[in-house]
Nucleic acid binder design. Structure first.
Length: 597
DNA sequence: GCCGTTTTCGGCCCGACTGTTTTCAGTCG
């Protein structure tokens, strides 16, 4: 690998070092250490290079003085002598093969040796060729079956490399719900729950994990592997099974008894690192944890609920969204877990697009202001902020743009007036009211894409970046702060600009942004759009640590989109947000107060 | 190699499944 720079590349390098160590018989714990460092880097909030710049490498869990100094060398010189030394004598090709599912370090090494595959660049092709010509089955320890499996794994791996290989949360949700419906048709199935990263509400989901309670595990597993959407069975045992769906997604099933379901849920929700930490904690108390319960010596104690399971370890029940081993276990020990925000706490949506003809060059909404207000009524909201994109600057002069914005002001004022009177006549409950806003482009120089005069017509403004994504971190930060500086501007929309599976976000100096938001009462948006989920959860947590307030918005373009709110709330919860951290949990009158601040 | 409300030394999560095996290694989550 030529000079690894990104977190992904560095993690890959550390996994390779771990693989090399695992072939040396001396120290298997070093392998674990390197693997752990790699996954820590994969999950890191910020680019490793930035952490290194700030001298904060050691803050990442699993990175101690030794690996930190190796990474220091990496950033200074582009390579690490020690890593080279460790990997010396092994064919470079094997450090490509270890990333193919099903192939570990030992087999990768054996395959490379026996088949004389050395070059990293062609490793996958050469292995595929060998498999097709039947050469793998001839190697001791391999057979026809493993050769077949390897071929399939290689094909899938190659596909996965070209296309995005994780699902966005709502898609995974829908897939899981279909499966649950199917499973429930089997009389032997008791409870059936989607778990894993889906239950932890991670922004992207790899596999679908499902747990089922039953007294007849065999019947359930038989039923499961007959799922009509199945492409093939990956494995089938007496307690678990995995299938591959026709759409290429994997589903893992676990079955267990109802009276031990608590431990099963806990085990299968994960995360892996949360579970490892929990098991280490248990060991210190002389206990041993597994998916079946808690062992004290030889005696296994079963738990029907997760609450009881955690309680047995001296912990409060930890919401799944927090289970990433980022301090939640320590906080649970102190009994100081946050009371996380819930969808029911939300009183309004502050980033939505109606079909009002504002003549924007961006995308417009499909439903009218009235229709969206009616829908919001159903959701129990008190207000909606209408934030169509600003009128196009190239198609209109200043006066035309001001006129368009005035027209929307009039429309909203009349609508609010009539709705208020109509509803007041019927009962005392206030109707959902509309706020007049816009989502305004931030130009590359930080200027806003509407005239100064037009800003005065708005109740508040959301500003977002929709162009020139590749400015430097410094320039981008200056750009955003300039835009946020206008008094009417309250919210930075989709702050990182990332699109999941499409593009990385741009770089910002978050400390500077947080300071500014805190000082001038600006709010960062958690955009609930499925492939945005932006701010990302890790930055939500940083923002909250810095006392910065947030809003959760759907960016709805139809009235149905308003229900995407739950996914934004998931992000907030994963960022440890409580109700008080989220501005749009305020009622209408309180919101008006803070908006004018 | 990492890490500390048992420890700065001496520990380091736990179990299932598969394929190729005659009792287990490798891989995965």
């Amino acid at each position: 690998m030529a000079k690894p720079q990104t977190n992904k590349e560095i993690a890959k390098l550390l996994r390779s070092v771990a693989a090399a160590y695992s072939l040396k018989k001396d120290d298997q714990f070093r392998v674990i250490a390197y693997d752990r460092a790699a996954s820590s880097i994969e999950h890191a909030t910020s680019e490793l290079k930035d952490l290194w710049d700030d001298g904060k490498l050691g803050e990442l869990a699993g990175i101690g003085s030794s690996i930190a100094s190796h990474l220091d060398e990496l950033f200074r010189t582009g390579e690490v002598k020690h890593f080279k030394e460790v990997m010396k004598g092994y064919p470079p090709a094997m450090f490509e093969l270890i990333f193919v599912p099903g192939i570990g370090p030992k087999n990768a090494y054996r395959l490379c040796r026996k088949l004389k595959i050395t070059r990293a660049k062609t490793a996958l092709e050469e292995l595929e060729k060998a498999a097709k010509s039947g050469k793998i089955a001839e190697i001791a320890g391999f057979g026809v079956k493993s050769q077949q499996e390897m071929l399939k794994a290689l094909e899938a791996f190659k596909k996965g490399q070209t296309k995005a290989n994780r699902m966005v949360l709502p898609y995974a949700d829908a897939l899981a719900q279909e499966l649950i419906l199917y499973l429930k048709k089997c009389p032997a199935v008791g409870r059936a729950d989607p778990l894993g990263s889906l239950r932890r509400k991670v922004a992207t989901v790899g596999d679908i994990d499902i747990a089922v309670t039953t007294q007849e595990p065999n019947k359930v597993i038989d039923w499961f592997i007959r799922y009509p959407q199945k492409q093939k069975t990956i494995e089938r045992g007496s307690t678990k099974a995995s299938i591959l769906l026709k759409n290429g997604r994997q589903v893992d099933l676990r079955v267990g008894k109802p009276k031990a379901y608590g431990a099963m849920l806990q085990y299968f929700i994960g995360s892996k690192h949360h579970n490892i930490h929990l098991r280490e904690l248990a060991l210190k108390k002389g206990l041993s944890l597994s998916e079946y319960g808690i062992k004290k010596g030889k005696k296994l104690i079963e738990y029907a609920s997760e609450e009881a399971f955690y309680q047995a370890l001296g912990l409060d029940w930890i919401p799944p969204e927090l289970r990433e081993d980022t301090g939640e276990i320590e906080v649970a020990q102190e009994g100081k877990l946050p009371n996380l925000v819930e969808t029911a706490d939300v009183k309004g949506d502050l980033h939505i697009h109606s079909d009002f003809p504002i003549e924007t060059s961006h995308d417009e909404g499909a439903d009218s202001i009235e229709e969206m207000l009616e829908e919001a009524e159903e959701l129990g909201y008190e207000y909606l902020g209408f934030t169509e994109h600003n009128p196009s600057t190239s198609q209109h002069n200043v006066k035309q743009r001001i006129d368009l914005i005035k027209r929307k002001r009039d429309k909203i004022d009349k609508l609010n007036y009539s709705r208020e009177n109509k509803k007041r006549g019927r009962g005392n409950k206030l109707p959902v009211l509309a706020l007049n806003s816009l989502e305004i482009d931030i130009r590359p120089d930080g200027e806003l894409a509407i005239p100064e005069k037009a800003l005065a017509i708005l109740d508040f403004a959301v500003v977002s970046i929709h162009s020139s994504f590749s400015l430097s971190r410094r320039e981008m930060t200056k750009r955003v702060l300039a835009a946020l500086g206008h008094p009417k501007v309250k919210i930075l929309g989709h702050p990182t600009g990332r699109k999941i599976n499409e593009r990385e976000g741009f770089e910002l100096d978050w400390e500077e942004i947080f300071d500014f938001c805190l000082k001038y009462d600006k709010w960062l948006e958690i955009n609930a759009w499925p492939n945005r989920l932006d701010l990302p959860d890790t930055l939500v947590r940083e923002a909250i640590k810095n006392s910065v307030k947030l809003v959760i918005s759907t960016d709805a373009h139809t009235k149905e989109h308003l229900t995407l709110m739950e996914y934004g709330v998931s992000v907030a919860r994963r960022g440890w947000a409580q109700k008080a951290d989220i501005i749009n949990t305020l009622g209408y009158n309180e919101f008006l107060q803070v908006m004018k601040h």
